[in-house]
Design a protein around this nucleic acid. Structure first.
Length: 760
RNA sequence: GGUCGCAUAGCUCAGUUGGUUAGAGCGCACGAUUCACAUUCGUGAGGUCAAAGGUUCAAGUCCUUUUGCGACCACCA
């Protein structure tokens, strides 16, 4: 054995030894009565290589997996990668932009194929990195979120939801870019500070009818106008209501009164809602439900009409009367001019600073538009998904570990709204929806790539005048069918000749497929896996995706199986650098875990990452911590080197230490208990101190003073090798192989040797 | 504005249902070492556990208030 531990020469060899043993996979015939222990790896995004955050998760998961494998549980650690819909497409489009191309240059199939190839490469990299970290994952059960069988599983779930009446189609305001001809997710919207004119518009106030309350009599009725400050006067013609805050002393008397629409002279009622900020502008707002997210919510709450004034091309709709067909920009000028002519503009603040939503790509304004989207009912009376998730928290069927996060989860669940699962991107699982085209050509907007590779878009009935449905279908990019267009659910093109169909181009929200992950990965593996490994034991993930992922897994998996998908949710913290600053590419403080592995060894990294870590709490570490990990590895190495070099002769005068066995057992009990309770950081810390400051500093030293026997020393080493193995698998396995060679232990592989709890 | 956290040694952080003298790593000071390991060993300095009040035989730990920091959600017409 070398004087210093050389991880470079050992890690790959040891990983291969484990792979060759085939023991990462759960044993074919588990012992009767063996409990199952399952961890499904949260799939890392397959659009980039792993960062230290992944290393933290993988270490925690692998520590628990290795511990339970040694306990003799029927253990499965299932690896995977995620297509990460919007994020991946975003990353990929950035790369396209470098070549002066965009997604609009390609039809769906071509674009999908290109992203697929890109992701496959990254997925391979992520898997190789996972191996370098020592993850004892069963590679034969690996799953990618866009594998054919996973896609089929997700579609089956959608069909089941539809049959159970939990799927519906409804309008939702989406971020639509008329310039690009598509809608965007919130991630793709860039808010830009701009100076735009703030118009103070006068709404003629109708005289009071008969005063009904005492208060009404006191009100000064001499004011002729209600003034509203707005940056967006152009859709005023579709406005039907104004709003004030009922707590606003200055304006609350206006609630229930009527004004004239300054453009159409229609009567508008003033309503009360506390979303209005009395201190802003005049304290009175106009409601444009079809084109503003707040107004939309308020309109829904008060059952107000939602009238579209702007269409997907960014033009004023027919509802706009004389303004119909004008672009938003031109309409604004025209509207302001008309209002000024009527004397209904009190003043204009030309220097108003506001935040404008723009398209990240074109820089053009985003228009919130109501478009039909698919939703999952989360509080259906018959299948109340939220209620079941809350029930499993109440009954402790699922426990949340991590600094008060259970309260946050409950808060999210209670306030959860129906889940919009439509995404207007290519990179994902395509929704199995087909729209009936015939008789509804006038309600279908779409864009496609024609035979000359040119992008065309517009209303289907217009497009059909020049292009065949077949050509449109072939080059289809994005479709938007009106709410009345009939649709059928089918995985393939409908074969019926009765109607003609075009497919929905939306894909499922990434989280819709990942919400089924624990069930989907097991159900699409070996036939008995779901029964054998579900519910899983531990779900480890970082706390920032608690609502997006963990909560939705609880909703969907419970819906699919009747059982909550995991017993314990371990929420690890975010990884920060040595100065406590959050890692990000822009700050340049991102650490590539593989560089640490190269330099200090995987064991050193794993130890540095988990020691003294706590669920739900962020952790920062740097060079000093890696060094400490490496030093520990070296300490283990040299203690082993010493013990292995001793022979019975030199120990023939040694007396047995009567307290040794008891103390060792105490360490085993403590570490076991801490691991059982998922106190991984404490277990590591505990192990570190006892090994270094008790076994090395005291036991080995007193052995030199003839106070400890050689068998005691050897038993201590073998036991610590076992205890350290979940944390530092490579070096401990290597030490074990030396012990095995000297016939000091009987198991040929430390990884599958029994945990010392029962063997002392 | 709403919700949830955090505050312990110079730095980064542990501290189990409240229970001896509050711990670790790094850093610091002094010393040692051909005998497993200088990626080592020994000795030591360093803490009114954010502040105030309360419960208790006993509080870093439980309760209340205050201060500072952070995260998430909502909002910016």
């Amino acid at each position: 054995m070398d004087k210093q531990y050389q991880h470079q020469e050992i890690e790959d060899k040891i990983y291969q030894l484990w792979l060759d043993s085939g023991q990462f996979a759960p044993v074919n015939k588990p012992k009767p009565g063996a409990k199952s222990f399952t961890i499904i790896m949260p799939p890392p995004n397959a659009n980039d290589s792993l960062h230290v955050g992944h290393a933290l998760g993988i270490t925690i998961q692998d520590v628990l997996t290795r511990y339970h494998r040694m306990l003799g549980d029927d253990t499965l650690y299932l690896p995977s990668t995620d297509h990460a819909g919007i994020e991946t497409q975003y990353v990929y489009e950035k790369n396209l932009a470098k070549e002066d191309k965009s997604r609009f240059d390609f039809d769906r199939q071509t674009l999908y194929r290109m992203i697929w190839d890109y992701v496959q490469n990254n997925s391979q990299v992520a898997m190789a990195q996972t191996k370098r970290l020592g993850a004892s994952t069963d590679w034969s059960r690996f799953k990618f979120t866009l594998d054919k069988d996973i896609q089929d599983f997700v579609l089956t779930t959608f069909e089941k939801l539809y049959k159970d009446g939990l799927i519906y189609r409804d309008y939702r305001l989406v971020n639509y870019s008329p310039a690009a001809g598509t809608s965007y997710s919130n991630l793709e919207v860039v808010y830009v500070n701009r100076t735009s004119p703030l118009y103070y518009v006068r709404y003629p106030l109708l005289p009071l009818g008969d005063a009904k309350t005492k208060d009404d009599k006191k009100i000064d009725t001499s004011s002729k106008y209600v003034v509203v400050a707005t940056t967006r006067p152009e859709p005023i013609f579709v406005d039907t209501h104004l709003a004030v805050n009922p707590k606003d002393k200055k304006n609350r008397h206006l609630i229930g009164r009527q004004v004239l629409n300054p453009l159409t002279d229609q009567h508008m009622t003033i309503i009360g809602d506390d979303f209005v900020d009395p201190k802003f502008g005049t304290g009175v707002v106009k409601l444009t439900p079809a084109h503003d997210h707040d107004d939309y919510r308020v309109a829904k709450k008060h059952n107000l009409p939602i009238v579209a004034g702007i269409d997907t091309r960014g033009k004023i709709t027919e509802n706009g009367g004389k303004y119909a067909g004008l672009s938003v920009k031109k309409a604004r000028l025209a509207v302001v001019e008309d209002l000024q002519a009527k004397g209904l503009i009190e003043k204009i603040n030309e220097h108003y600073q506001n935040r404008v939503a723009t398209c990240y790509k074109t820089g053009q304004p985003i228009e919130p538009l109501p478009l039909p989207q698919f939703f999952i009912k989360v509080k259906d009376p018959k299948h109340n998904l939220v209620k079941k998730a809350l029930a499993s928290l109440n009954s402790k069927e699922t426990k949340i570990h991590g600094a008060g996060r259970e309260k946050i989860l409950r808060h999210w669940l209670k306030n959860l709204e129906d889940w919009n699962i439509s995404r207007q991107i290519v990179w994902g699982i395509k929704m199995p929806i087909w729209y009936q085209v015939d008789s509804f050509e006038y309600q279908i907007n779409l864009s496609f790539i024609d035979q000359k590779k040119q992008q065309k878009f517009g209303l289907l009935q217009d497009l059909l005048k020049k292009t065949s449905l077949k050509t449109i279908s072939k080059g289809l990019q994005q479709i938007s069918a009106g709410p009345d267009v009939p649709f059928i659910i089918s995985r393939n093109q409908p074969t019926t000749t009765k109607h003609k169909y075009l497919p929905e181009t939306d894909t499922f929200d990434t989280w819709f497929s990942s919400s089924q992950w624990p069930v989907a990965t097991l159900a699409t593996n070996q036939t008995t896996d779901l029964k054998r490994f579900y519910p899983t034991q531990v779900m480890d993930t970082s706390y920032d995706i608690l609502p997006f992922w963990v909560m939705r897994m609880m909703l969907m998996c419970t819906y699919l199986t009747g059982k909550s998908p995991f017993k314990d949710v371990y929420l690890h913290g975010l990884v920060r650098d040595a100065k406590g600053i959050k890692m990000s590419k822009s700050k340049g403080n991102v650490v590539n875990p593989i560089e640490i592995v190269d330099h200090y060894g995987a064991d050193a990294l794993r130890m540095a990452i988990v020691i003294r870590s706590t669920a739900g709490q962020d952790k920062s570490f740097g060079e000093a911590d890696y060094k400490a990990g490496r030093n520990l590895a070296n300490k283990l190495w040299n203690a082993s080197r010493y013990v292995l070099s001793q022979d019975a002769d030199s120990f023939k005068d040694n007396k047995s230490d009567p307290k040794f066995t008891l103390k060792l057992k105490k360490v085993v009990d403590q570490v076991s208990e801490q691991l059982d309770q998922l106190k991984i950081g404490q277990a590591a810390d505990n192990l570190y101190s006892h090994f270094w400051h008790w076994y090395c500093d005291q036991v080995i030293e007193s052995a030199k003073q003839n106070q400890v026997t050689l068998p005691q020393l050897q038993a201590g080493l073998a036991t610590f090798a076992k205890l350290f193995h979940p944390f530092m698998p490579f070096i401990t396995e290597q030490i074990w192989q030396e012990l095995f060679k000297k016939k000091l232990v009987t198991d040929s592989l430390l990884m599958t040797s029994p945990w010392p709890k029962n063997s002392l």
